[in-house]
Design a protein around this nucleic acid. Structure first.
Lengths: 230, 230
DNA sequence: ATGGAAATTGACTCCGGGTCAAGATCTGGG
DNA sequence: CCCAGATCTTGACCCGGAGTCAATTTCCAT
């Protein structure tokens, strides 16, 4: 157990180290790919440029990820993990309930975007553009991994009695995701500095308060219906 | 005015005829492109294959449409026009109001899809996959042309007092579009014969009644809120 | 050291979008 | 009927980038 030379040349130890190096390299490539995709889009990103920036050869990229689509998928997954889950909000906020938490995250979106614009852009690209095959893989991943924890979040709202339980959760989850995305669109379009994230939504005049309206729509849709008697 | 030979060889007449031929060829190419895109997806479609099937040369395609993206955009626009507008429902249905009309169209979706599966697939492809630039053009087109008349439809609902007017129309329109899309997804996944439209949504078990649940969600969201007193 | 397994490389192939000079077709006038 | 000029059409060609694979390097166990 003395640190220094590999203690007794155990095969397992060596293998583990090599596995570690693999993973590190994979992670490095993924990180670089995220930057590249964010900067140039899916079509605009060159496998060779990623290889160069990551300090490996083009062949290695395909060795690790199989194809450009595979590389993007990895970058996309990494990007989604760069954002927190709904229920990671501070306890004080969570105590305020489902809609308070939702509002909290929406208010923090501009800051999060600025702090992590590459992941944000990659997620955007993944949501909107790719061939159907890739799109399908992304959907599958989102459903299986649920990286934002939307499902847990909705169930949290249901447990607190804020979110209706008279219909399936799936449509509700889908609607929450959609609302959040639309609000992000609005926020991006409204942001005072259109430099970084520009050229997606042209400046159709965005009325302030749009976010609130989307949230209101969501609330009407998924809050527990008032009991008919009253 | 006697039909037969071109009356008196007028320049205008000749120009008009040539313009007509142009348009006819353009339409032909667009129609063929729609089939090809529907069958093979965006990436999978070869400009040369379209040219061959349309009986023109590859150069002509680029002459008419500038690029593959331009060709797709044309096919996409043609595809959206192949579907009716919401308010084109039979008068008897329209008399039943907003939600009745919505339900009518949803019930007719399977039939429409079978009868016009190429336009349907192309619209699907356009909604989900393309590079950001193309996506943006598609969004612009949808907002400007509103080929399904969703905006008119929502205002129709508002005029009838069925749809709330206390928030902007834009979020409502967006939500109606989204709901319709999701319902279509569900219907496609539920269809007994998964042959034609298969391999997009894998058979995640779809509970019957999902469509109704989405509509219920929509109704809760956008119906006029019950007055607080009651 | 050394044999061999595994990782890495980058020159190469292949494919498809896009171009453009050459040729076909059309138009109007003589 | 024929000609000149304009316009349309063609398909061989170019080019860039995804993906491959034989050769080479790195790594490890003995």
């Amino acid at each position: 157990m003395i640190p220094g030379q590999p203690a007794q040349g155990d095969a397992t130890r060596a293998l583990a180290r090599s596995r570690d190096r693999q993973l590190a390299k994979r992670a490095k490539i993924t990180a670089v790919a995220m930057e590249e995709f964010a900067a140039h889009g899916y079509e605009g990103t060159r496998a060779e440029a990623v290889a160069l920036a990551a300090g490996v050869s083009k062949g290695a990229i395909f060795g690790y990820f199989g194809s450009k689509a595979g590389l993007f998928l990895a970058a996309y997954q990494a990007a989604t993990l760069a954002f927190g889950r709904y229920l990671d909000a501070p306890p004080g906020i969570l105590a305020g309930g489902f809609f308070a938490t939702l509002t909290y995250w929406l208010e923090h979106t501009p800051g999060l975007m600025r702090q992590a614009w590459a992941p944000y852009r990659v997620v955007l690209i993944g949501s909107y553009c790719s061939d159907l095959g890739l799109k399908r893989e992304i959907d599958t991943y989102m459903r299986r991994a649920d990286p934002y924890g939307t499902a847990d979040f909705v169930r949290f709202g249901q447990r607190r009695g804020e979110v209706r339980t008279d219909i399936d959760v799936e449509p509700i989850i889908a609607l929450v995701d959609w609302t959040f995305d639309r609000c992000q669109d609005v926020i991006v379009a409204t942001e005072p500095d259109p430099g970084i994230l520009s050229n997606l939504t042209q400046s159709a005049v965005v009325r302030p308060g749009s976010v609130e309206q989307f949230v209101q729509l969501l609330r009407s849709a998924i809050a527990v219906p008032a009991e008919p008697g009253r």
